[in-house]
């Protein structure tokens, strides 16, 4: 059962990821990204990270990619890009070699060092019939006790991001009309 879930989710993730890299139309690329995000969300669920799966769908698929699509449509850059030209000679083969190399090194590290990692923490609560929201309770307890300062800082970060974006996207008429 879990094998089936893994295979389907992995297929979603990989097809989506390849789609992002290879599709020439930005909207198609964005939809491929959504496919990947859903695949990742499924994997989160199979790791008992139910809350993260929900947040992944709400934040990533529901807000971030919608924002991407919004910008694509608003700016009118939804025309397919010509991918047949290679601006720098040998850029693509080199990029593929570097990318595959990074993956290969990381995989080698994973496969060789795996034996040293056993269960060392306090445990991750599993969802059961008696406590369906065990994962959310545990996550909330850790976020609001051990990591409360980091949590508050992220809210400051979001505020800074919002203000910065408004300032950047704001255009004054004096610039436009040359006053």
């Amino acid at each position: 059962m879990e094998l089936f879930v893994f295979v389907v989710a992995a297929a979603m993730v990989l097809i989506g990821a390849l789609g992002v890299v290879t599709r020439s139309n930005p909207v198609h690329a964005a939809m491929s990204l959504v496919l990947t995000l859903f695949g990742i969300a499924v994997m989160f669920v199979s790791h008992n990270a139910h809350f993260l799966a929900a947040v992944q769908v709400i934040v990533y698929a529901g807000a971030i990619v919608v924002l991407f699509l919004f910008v694509i449509m608003l700016l009118g850059v939804d025309k397919a890009e010509d991918l047949s030209v290679e601006p720098i000679t040998n850029q693509r083969p080199l990029a593929v070699i570097i990318g595959v190399g990074i993956s290969a090194i990381v995989i080698a590290a994973i496969v060789t060092s795996r034996s040293g990692l056993g269960p060392s923490g306090k445990g991750v609560n599993e969802t059961t019939l008696e406590s369906p929201d065990a994962n959310i309770r545990q996550l909330a307890r850790v976020i609001f006790s051990d990591n409360v300062f980091a949590f508050e800082l992220t809210s400051v970060l979001l505020l800074v991001a919002v203000i910065g974006t408004v300032v950047m996207a704001r255009k004054t008429k004096s610039v436009g009309t040359g006053k």
């Binding site: 390849l18 990029a95 990318g99 595959v100 990074i102």
Partner: peptide, 9 residues
């Protein structure tokens, strides 16, 4: 790791 590689490319 594979996903990361694809992203890098």
């Amino acid at each position: 790791a594979v996903l990361f590689g694809i992203g890098t490319i």
